[in-house]
């Protein structure tokens, strides 16, 4: 693992040029390991969040369970997952499953609060116009809850990008590997490029995913733009 580039932090570009294929592969797996749990998490959270909104007694238990899940450090959850799923220790599925747990823990509450934030008079006029319960949910409640849910998605996604990197320390390939490589190459004095490159790529990835959610949310809520423009 020698490199033409130097060992200073700003040599990350040289490092990237030398290891382009490998780095892009790590970036790609980091991306899907971060995004997939958010997608699954959202699909799971919508019905549970709706239940928590619909039946008020569900809400307190949802809050306490999600609070407990949040307390568990991610490294511990990565390692405990094989016990629950019967997977191999180094299976990326463990990471996806663990991060899905966090995402659901965050989003269930967000969905419930987002639905609760839909004004009562809007719901009543929807009912008065003869929309069925499902129509109300699909045509009124969900669209109006989009901004809140999108905000939750942003938090979950940005957090996931940081958490995925932790799995690198137990050998799962993603951008966290760059930190490990840098650590191992620093035995005889600091070797910064892969570490700094990893941090920069993680932050960039978080920014890009965050931006995509913002764009998607804007596209889904044209009325918000009108309000903002005023």
């Amino acid at each position: 693992m020698t490199s033409a580039a130097g060992s200073a932090p700003w040599d990350l570009f040289g490092y990237f040029a030398d290891h382009r294929g490998q780095v892009l592969e790590l970036l790609w797996s980091h991306t899907w390991l971060s995004v997939l749990p958010v997608v699954i998490g959202l699909l799971v959270s919508l019905p549970i969040g709706w239940l928590a909104r619909r039946y008020r007694w569900v809400y307190p238990s949802v809050v306490s369970v999600t609070g407990l899940l949040y307390t568990i450090p991610s490294l511990a959850l990565f390692v405990i997952m094989p016990m629950l799923l019967g997977t191999q220790i180094l299976d990326p599925v463990n990471v996806v499953a663990a991060l899905t747990v966090y995402t659901v823990a965050l989003l269930v509450r967000v969905v419930a609060d987002g639905l609760a934030a839909v004004p009562d008079d809007v719901m009543q006029s929807a009912t008065a116009m003869g929309l069925t319960r499902f129509q109300r949910l699909r045509k009124v409640e969900l669209p109006l809850a989009v901004p809140v849910i999108a905000a939750g998605l942003r938090v979950a996604t940005v957090a996931n990008v940081s958490l995925v990197a932790i799995a690198g320390t137990i050998g799962i390939p993603e951008l966290g590997q760059l930190f490990i490589i840098g650590f191992q190459l620093s035995v005889n004095g600091p070797y910064y490029p892969p570490i700094v490159l990893g941090i920069v790529l993680c932050v960039l990835l978080a920014l890009v995913l965050d931006g995509l959610i913002v764009l998607g949310s804007r596209w889904a809520t044209p009325w918000q733009r009108v309000v903002a423009a005023r």
């Binding site: 940005v158 990008v161 940081s162 990197a165 932790i166 690198g168 320390t169 951008l175 966290g176 930190f179 490990i180 840098g182 650590f183 620093s186 004095g189 600091p190 070797y191 910064y192 570490i195 700094v196 990893g198 941090i199 993680c202 932050v203 978080a206």
Partner: peptide
């Protein structure tokens, strides 16, 4: 908060430890 914690940890270790 948006910095990856492992990256920060290893970066500081590599920087400060020597």
């Amino acid at each position: 908060r948006s910095l990856p914690t492992v990256g920060l940890l290893i970066l500081l270790y590599v920087m400060v430890s020597p």
